[in-house]
Amino acid sequence: MIDEKLLIFGAGSHARKLADSLRRRGDNVLGFVTTHQSALKELEGLPVFTWETVPHYLRGQCPIACGIFNRSDAYDQLAKTIRANGFSRILWPWDYYPYLHHDLGWCYWLDPNPRPPSAWRQDSDYQEIVSNLADSESRKTLDRILAFRSGSDLEFASYTSHETQYFNPLTLGALNPGKPVSFLDVGAYNGDTLESLIQYAEVTKAVLIEPDPDNLNLLSLNLDRLTRLHQGLNPYVLPVGAGAEHCSLSLSGEGEATTVSINGDTDSRTTRFATITPIDSIMPAECFDFIKVDVEGHDLQALRGMRELLHRSHAVLAISLYHRPLDVVHLPLAVIDLLDGIPYEYFIRQHMHNSFDTVFYAIPGRVKR
Rank of each mutant, 00 (worst) to 15 (best):
D214F: 03
G178R: 07
G26P: 01
V186K: 05
T227A: 11
H351K: 07
N217A: 10
C66N: 15
L30T: 08
Q61E: 15
E308Y: 00
G297P: 04
E296D: 14
M306C: 14
I348E: 10
F347R: 13
D125Q: 12
L331I: 05
P63N: 05
D192S: 04
F49L: 03
I209Y: 05
A79F: 00
R115Q: 15
L333E: 12
I262K: 15
T271M: 13
Y126D: 09
A242E: 02
N85E: 12
T81V: 14
P98I: 07
T35K: 13
M352F: 06
I145K: 02
I68A: 04
I145E: 06
S313V: 07
L229Q: 14
A334E: 15
P364T: 09
D3T: 14
L218R: 14
S158W: 01
Q165E: 14
Y75K: 07
A147T: 01
L133G: 11
L310K: 07
G297Q: 05
R272V: 13
G191P: 11
E4P: 00
V293S: 05
G341W: 01
R324A: 01
P117Q: 13
G187L: 04
A188H: 04
L197P: 07
S131Y: 04
A84T: 06
R228I: 09
T81Q: 15
G26F: 05
L249E: 08
K292H: 05
T258K: 11
R144P: 00
T35R: 14
H311R: 14
I209N: 05
F9S: 04
S118E: 15
A74I: 01
L223P: 05
Y236I: 12
N190Q: 13
L78R: 01
I82W: 09
E308T: 12
Q77F: 05
L331S: 10
I348D: 11
I68V: 15
N176F: 01
R83G: 10
P343V: 08
L146T: 10
F288Q: 04
L251W: 02
R59D: 00
A285N: 11
S250N: 12
G10A: 08
H246D: 09
V237S: 08
A201T: 11
